[in-house]
Write a protein that binds this DNA or RNA. Structure first.
Lengths: 206, 206
DNA sequence: TTTGTAAATGAATGTTCATTCATTTATATT
DNA sequence: AATATAAATGAATGAACATTCATTTACAAA
């Protein structure tokens, strides 16, 4: 027994990081394609090319897997959403960056987004909310400043969120074809974003 | 064998309508409380106080049960949403009636609404769309008229829908606590509806 | 009261599920 | 090369799953 035994134990087989990622991605794909009941541990193991038992090395159980997936996606989302954003920006510029960032995330990780939305709308959420503070605090500060500076009407945060982002998320869902309105598709372009954004700004101004 | 045999066969045990309703309501409750994977036919049978086999008298299988539930809720929704509505109404008045009707439905049938939303956001929808035409045609006519009369900016239907209803549905979800923003609750009162509605009208006007 | 019919049932079936465990494998250090 | 350790595994387990079926039950007409 060497001196490192209690600090760092190096004599071991190393983890295959690819396996972890494969499990994560396949799990989200299965949930998006087939729903929560479509995700079984054995089907997931087969899809990710691992043994069922391997999944239980990375995740305590099925529920833990789902929660860790959710937290992973949430963290990625926060990172993308905060890029280039500063709560001291002007209201219009700041909100536009938010819209663009959110769309960027959705187009880059459509599976992650759809998994996230499905999870959020599902009943059995374990609101872990560990790392969230930074993001939420930043957003709160941004809105408070906008009101103080007279760039936005004073209103409850839920009403603000609904006007500012409810509109955006609705368009995104049309874009991802979760909801088909008429026969034809709706493609969310930059131009359409701008049109809707101008309307939202008009609505929020004092 | 009597003369009625081929037209009306009355010598039979009558159906218990209560059972059908019990199955329907309990099924939606289970899905809203525990998600789609929380609905098992045996648990449902126990909750509705019937035999598992009885469910299969009313519904071909699990999938058929879900689809029939969805269609049932959709029909109820359309009935409520169209009450007092006329596509020839002024834009502002017509849209306000829509908002009030939709909220009325949601407050009267919160379980139905939450089931409906969960179903719409789930991947495996069999878009049956049988009786929908009347409702959708009425809505389309209403929006076309509003544009023609210059009460509303010309825009794609999906953008209109997102601004007009995306906002409302977002507030409703806050109200039903599907999404908790801060610690405290958000109660969607008539006054708050009116505030948001005025903002939306401002956004949509030319 | 008897009778024909469909409603309603409880037990049974075969399948799929999440999870576990005894064993094997790969690797970083010695 | 030897070793210690955790990674990785395939087969196994028992529970829960959707669905079926041989019976029984209730009802409306005769």
């Amino acid at each position: 027994m060497n001196v490192h035994s209690f600090i760092f134990v190096p004599e071991m087989r190393t983890r295959d990081e690819n396996k972890e990622a494969a499990i994560r991605e396949k799990a989200m794909k299965m949930i998006v394609d087939e729903g929560f009941d479509g995700l079984s541990m054995q089907k997931l193991a087969k899809a990710a090319n691992v043994s069922p038992a391997t999944i239980y090395i990375y995740y305590k159980n099925r529920e833990d897997l789902l929660n860790q997936l959710f937290n992973h996606v949430q963290q990625t989302f926060y990172d993308v959403a905060l890029a280039g954003f500063d709560p001291l920006l002007s209201f219009e510029e700041g909100l536009w960056i938010q819209w663009k960032n959110r769309l960027k995330f959705i187009l880059k990780y459509p599976i992650h987004f759809q998994f996230y939305e499905q999870f959020r709308n599902s009943p059995c959420i374990n609101h872990t909310d560990v790392q969230i503070s930074t993001f939420k605090e930043s957003m709160k500060l941004f809105v408070m400043n906008a009101i103080k500076k007279g760039e936005m009407k004073k209103m409850e945060p839920e009403i603000f969120w609904s006007v500012a982002y409810g509109t955006l998320y609705s368009m995104v869902k049309f874009h991802l074809q979760e909801i088909k309105m008429m026969g034809n598709d709706f493609k969310l372009t930059d131009a359409k974003m701008k049109i809707a954004f101008e309307m939202v700004i008009k609505a929020l101004k004092p």
